[in-house]
């Protein structure tokens, strides 16, 4: 990035370095949210629909994991992916994939916990009908996830918000390498450490604008879809 440009100028001029940072940040966070959804939604549904010993403990644990500090997750993923760690052979440390892994771990508990709540509420409503229709277990889970899809979008957005906003995990496992693993938040951290506070704040505003756009888009989609399916 040119040294003496404001963030606004960078955006308006379509600065390629800024563009690649934004693109990477979006790809990493969205991939993490999608992977976390594939793990978290079925897990949430499973806990919602089953009763087992220690279920209450599992829910409390899940709610606690929602608040796990990103730095801790970053450190654990770092130790796992390091060449000296158990998964070192994968060679993933300091790559975008490592950031996706860390953010997936960060986001999955949020999506699981919120999905559990949403699906459990819907299950209470649907239980009699689905039982009376003799729907087997996999069908029940599928129906609940499908019919809760608009509420689940909110869970995904909460996860996306956490992923897009965090810096602690991605900076440790990604290394903030220019052109490879530099995202919006790590760029903000870097500009702050270089003392370029106006650029850091400008990047922060860009980040907020992007998160706002994603949320607005999801809202519009949700509204439009709700009108069709109720």
């Amino acid at each position: 990035m040119p040294d003496n440009a404001s963030a606004l100028q960078l955006v308006l001029s379509g600065d390629p370095a800024l563009f690649s940072i934004v693109l990477l940040a979006m790809i990493v966070s969205l991939s993490a949210v999608l992977l976390a959804a594939l793990i978290g939604v079925p897990l949430g549904a499973l806990i919602a629909l089953t009763s087992f010993r220690g279920r209450d403990g599992a829910i409390v644990l899940l709610n606690t994991l929602m608040g796990l500090p990103p730095v801790v997750i970053g450190l654990l993923v770092y130790l796992a992916l390091s060449r000296s760690g158990p998964l070192g052979a994968w060679g993933l440390l300091f790559t975008p994939q490592a950031m996706v892994i860390a953010q997936t771990i960060l986001v999955a508990p949020i999506i699981a916990a919120l999905s559990r709540q949403t699906i459990e509420d819907l299950w209470l409503e649907y239980r009699d009908e689905l039982t009376a229709m003799n729907v087997p277990w996999p069908g029940r889970v599928g129906t609940l996830i499908w019919d809760a899809r608009f509420s689940l979008i909110t869970a995904l957005l909460a996860g996306f918000g956490r992923a897009a906003a965090e810096v602690g995990a991605v900076i440790i496992v990604g290394g903030n390498i220019e052109g490879h693993t530099r995202t919006m938040t790590t760029a903000i951290a870097l500009e702050t450490s270089k003392g370029d506070l106006p650029l850091a704040i400008g990047l922060g505003i860009v980040l907020m604008a992007i998160v706002l756009m994603v949320n607005a888009l999801a809202w519009v989609v949700r509204r439009a879809a709700e009108r069709v399916a109720g």
């Binding site: 969205l30 999608l34 594939l38 975008p96 996999p138 499908w146």
Partner: peptide
Amino acid sequence: MKIHRRSLALMAIAVLSSAAAAP
């Protein structure tokens, strides 16, 4: 079941996009 098709699509997107992130 619709949901399965959707999950597969999501998984494909996630894998492709993380691969695309490290060209």
